[in-house]
């Protein structure tokens, strides 16, 4: 069943959040199409990206939801968060304001996702090092304080983009293995395709029956 290239064992839902213009869509595009959008003609449906990756021998389909970053939409974009297994929080290293807003983004994410959701901090536009407005150390410290994974990446060059997505997936997969993530909860952001052989599912069937929340 899983032999085909389009077969996968899991579906992870990611969301990408952050202020407007930090390059959320470009990161997504870079990851799903391996292209920087300024270079290529516009493609339809970019903001909803999917890509199949492999983690620990398991094929995982990532579904990445881009979100609107405008401040005025903050109040209404909360439904994006529902059921996200991973959240990529993006800021622009050349614009300090985007970094300053991180705390409010983090608050939303914590409140709106379940505790096992993996949050990954990305400082985008690392190729524009000359215009840097936020130091790596400062951001790293922020990430550590809040228990986030952190990397500086460039959607333009593709540097670290892949890693950010993959690391997030690994972390999620890890929590599945650990049993911290309930696959049967609709809000877990993870769908398991039981047809795959050798299911590494820690979730016991009994639990599923008892608590279908």
């Amino acid at each position: 069943m899983t032999s085909g290239p389009y077969n996968y064992s899991y579906i992870f839902k990611y969301i990408i959040i952050g202020d407007m213009g930090v390059g959320k869509s470009c990161l997504l595009h870079q990851f799903t199409d391996k292209k920087f959008m300024a270079d290529c003609p516009h493609t339809i449906g970019v903001e909803f990206g999917t890509r199949i990756i492999e983690v620990a021998g398991q094929k995982i389909k990532l579904q990445i939801w881009d979100t609107a970053g405008q401040e005025r939409f903050r109040a209404v974009t909360r439904s994006y968060y529902r059921g996200a297994a991973g959240a990529l929080m993006v800021y622009d290293i050349t614009r300090r304001s985007t970094y300053n807003h991180l705390s409010s983004w983090l608050t939303d994410t914590r409140n709106l996702t379940n505790p096992s959701t993996v949050i990954f901090l990305i400082g985008n536009k690392s190729d524009l090092d000359g215009q840097r407005d936020v130091t790596y150390e400062e951001a790293k410290q922020f990430a550590d304080e809040n228990g986030l994974m952190f990397v500086e990446a460039s959607a333009k060059t593709g540097q670290n983009v892949e890693e950010a997505f993959l690391e997030t997936a690994k972390k999620i997969y890890q929590s599945i293995q650990d049993g911290r993530l309930d696959l049967n909860a609709a809000e877990s952001g993870v769908q398991h395709k039981p047809a795959s052989p050798g299911r590494p599912l820690p979730a016991p069937p009994a639990a599923r029956d008892n608590c279908a929340c």
């Binding site: 959008m37 970019v46 903001e47 939801w65 609107a68 970053g69 405008q70």
Partner: peptide, 20 residues
Amino acid sequence: CRHVLRLCSAAPASADDLLP
């Protein structure tokens, strides 16, 4: 929504454009 997406084809489509 796909039609709407193509509407805002001026810039690279992103959720920032899609929602408005």
